[in-house]
Design a protein around this nucleic acid. Sequence first.
DNA 1: CTTGACTCCTTACCCAACGTCAGGATGTAT
DNA 2: ATACATCCTGACGTTGGGTAAGGAGTCAAG
Lengths: 242, 242
Amino acid sequence: MNSKTGWKVGELANQTGLTVRTLHHYDKIRLLTPSQRSGAGHRIYNEADIARLQQIMSLKQLGFPLEDIKQMIESPDFEPTKVVQLQLERLNDQIRIQEQLRSQLTIIYELLKTKQDVSVKHLINLIEVINMDNYFTQEQLNKMKSLGDQYGPEEKRKHEQEMSDIVSNIREEIRKGTAPDNPKAIELARRWKELTEKFTGGDENIVKAAEQFYKENPDTPVENYGVDEEVYRFIKNAMSHA
Amino acid sequence: MNSKTGWKVGELANQTGLTVRTLHHYDKIRLLTPSQRSGAGHRIYNEADIARLQQIMSLKQLGFPLEDIKQMIESPDFEPTKVVQLQLERLNDQIRIQEQLRSQLTIIYELLKTKQDVSVKHLINLIEVINMDNYFTQEQLNKMKSLGDQYGPEEKRKHEQEMSDIVSNIREEIRKGTAPDNPKAIELARRWKELTEKFTGGDENIVKAAEQFYKENPDTPVENYGVDEEVYRFIKNAMSHA
DNA sequence: CTTGACTCCTTACCCAACGTCAGGATGTAT
DNA sequence: ATACATCCTGACGTTGGGTAAGGAGTCAAG
């Protein structure tokens, strides 16, 4: 008798902290349609429905719009495990950003408390970091796009896509003249490093060899994701501020 | 020449990561009106404007609607320092929730990976914790309401308000028969403990004396914020699962 | 078996915080 | 002078629900 077999909408709402309205909504847009209705037309959710709801909430927390979530979940090669994995990854990103936020906030707090005036640079940095929280889901979206792909070529494509994403972002920052101790710059450098480590299997030597190579042959037009000297210097520079 | 004196809307957008549209919007609802316009009507933001923008973003991250933010900022006894302080406090709450989230996620991930089936209880717990992130700003709202009050009686009132908030939440959970190892229960117990520690100035003995007293006189109708034996047992129980 | 007190149903309008054009004026680099 | 980016002001669209209305279903107590 420990295992219930059906939940009515109100019960489910209470247990999950969602509202009844939300569940109705998900039903109407056919994102989560309870597998049964009672004689009187009351929604009855079963275990499978709840499992689906969990997937929905996870994806929602990752920042996807409901419509996309529907597509993903209904894709034939959808894998629940990956969703959870991605969510864990994201958690780490978030924690890092929060650490940055904390340090920015602490700086400002100290300045305010001692009645010094806060420089514009600090203010802008703070605003930027606050925003990253929202803005960051875009990266996740990239990673997710290939959720249903095969594992071989997909892995590579995913990396290439993220690499070019990072590099184009860096170009942007260079164009804007962003300072190397800027939080956004630091975060970009961090991502670049992480990715190259994945590429090379974490082998420091390969990285160093490549760096050396590009330093000596600065104008090699090799398939390099557009990492030229300028970009490279920017990364190095930002990295030193991490 | 290191200090600019004016920013156009696009510049500001780029630096902060906000969109131009957002700044336009804030201008239209008169949340942030640039202090100058160029001859041609272009918005020119100065340092004070940016400082205000930072306050806005901080409050927004705390979960307040723009309309409320406007009220707060324009209140005569508004204190920027407190905003930052509150944001730091919130950061801690968020980190705690994320730790809970991580542990729930890890459990599910392990189960999924080893092809065991995941119990409904776990799924529901996970959904709950995911939701806390959004739902939690309510508590902050309570704390914030009194941002402009005096410091003496206000401090007490704030505590009383939060205490009765917590207790009524606990009553809810009891009514719903929530298990003591439920994340929501644990979080509530944590808040209760934190608050009582503030009340008593962290003096363990006072807490213990009070506990003893209420155990021996279970039906004292003293101004006790409605903490009766049932509530008390629930807290103790949940606490043991933290 | 009826009367409350809940919970459920559907339909429908409402809202915040922007996104996304459209059409035109400004600015600025070559 | 000619692009080309950036600015302006409307104005309509969108997402993810909140909120209210009017009517049945359910369940325990009298």
